[in-house]
Structures are given as structure tokens and as C-alpha cells.
């Protein structure tokens, strides 16, 4: 790497950020997760707007550090990371392709919320291993904030569901 300073386009910056993966779901990068909301490349400053998945998500600090590292690796020195709260992160931002990746990784992808998380616990969550809908909720809170625990009565496997929010 030389020290030549190159002016990057916003798309190029976004491309760099696709190399940062969510530490808790290592098949998804932070761009397809919808954590990166906006990037802006001005003269000698790169600004990245990010939004937390959950208010208390402990991965956010690590994600910020990784953003710094990946941009520094590409000779960008002046980096500003903004945390924004509005609009609130929603799993509806995950594309079909992203949901497919989750399922292949063994996590049942989220149902659509249509901007409304209700007090009714969703039924018919499909098992990511055998696609059976004969599943039951074991706990609404799983190993991370974004997942709940289910059990498949068909293939008798416990699995995680990426909660719709």
C-alpha cells in the first residue's frame, strides 16, 4: 500500500464496508444488515452513519472499531462515525437474498413486520433444517438480542429464529 490519498466515491466506501461482518452472525455484513444507513465522502473526511440493531447490542462497539480498521486499511484517515436512531432498525430491511443466507447458516429468517411488532407471539416459524412448521417457541430471548429459541418437533432440533422487529 502506498500513501497516495485517493478520493473515493460513496459506492466504493460502501463496498469496503461489506467486508465488516456482524460478529454474532458472521454470514451477514453490516451493509446488508441495514446497520450502515449512509456514507458520505467529502474532501478529506468520510462520514459513516450507523444505526444499532437493538439499543443494548454489545456488538456495536466492535462494529465501530472494525469500520475504522477497514477504512484505515484503505488509507482513509479522517473518519467520523455517527450513531442515528431514526428510522429505527427493522428486519424488514433484510433482502430475500440476505434471508436466504441466514437460513443456510441455520437461523430461521425473520417474518415481515409491516412496521408493526405486536403483542401476539408469531406462530408457524419454519425450521431452517427441515422446513417443517411443526415448531414451538422455547424462549423469546436467545443467545443474542436479535434471536429467539425454537424447537422443531419434526427433526427434533433446537434452532434460532431471527426475531422480526
Amino acid at each position: 500500500m502506498n500513501n497516495h490519498k485517493k478520493q473515493y466515491s460513496n459506492d466504493e466506501i460502501l463496498q469496503f464496508l461489506t467486508e465488516v461482518y456482524d460478529p454474532e452472525i458472521p454470514v451477514l455484513n453490516i451493509v446488508e444488515m441495514g446497520i450502515v444507513r449512509n456514507v458520505e465522502c467529502k474532501e478529506n473526511e468520510v462520514r459513516v452513519d450507523i444505526t444499532p440493531t437493538y439499543s443494548g447490542c454489545p456488538a456495536m462497539n466492535m462494529i465501530q472499531e472494525e469500520i475504522f480498521l477497514i477504512l484505515q486499511k484503505n488509507n482513509i484517515e479522517n473518519i467520523k462515525i455517527n450513531t442515528i436512531y431514526s428510522p429505527a432498525w427493522t428486519t424488514d430491511w433484510l433482502s430475500e437474498e440476505t434471508k436466504k443466507k441466514l437460513q443456510e447458516y441455520g437461523i430461521a429468517p425473520p417474518h415481515q413486520t409491516n412496521s408493526n411488532v405486536t403483542l401476539i407471539i408469531p406462530k408457524n416459524i419454519e425450521c431452517p433444517f427441515c422446513q417443517s412448521a411443526k415448531t414451538e417457541l422455547r424462549s423469546e430471548f436467545g443467545s443474542t438480542s436479535c434471536k429467539s429459541l425454537y424447537y422443531c418437533r419434526e427433526c427434533q432440533q433446537p434452532f434460532e429464529y431471527f426475531k422480526e422487529i
Binding site: P52, Y54, S55, I84, Y85, S86, P87, A88, W89, T90, V117, T118, L119, I121, E140, F141, K163, I165
Partner: peptide, 21 residues
């Protein structure tokens, strides 16, 4: 207030899960 509104909208969704539980 845009920031307060954003924080509250986010918290509201999380609280829905807490209340279910």
C-alpha cells in the same frame, strides 16, 4: 423532537418483546 422520537420508536419495539415475556 427528532432524536427523542427515534430513541422512543426503537425502544417501543424492544419493550413489546419485554411485555410479551
Amino acid at each position: 423532537h427528532p432524536t427523542l422520537s427515534g430513541i422512543a420508536a426503537k425502544a417501543f419495539k424492544e419493550i413489546t418483546y419485554h411485555l410479551r415475556h
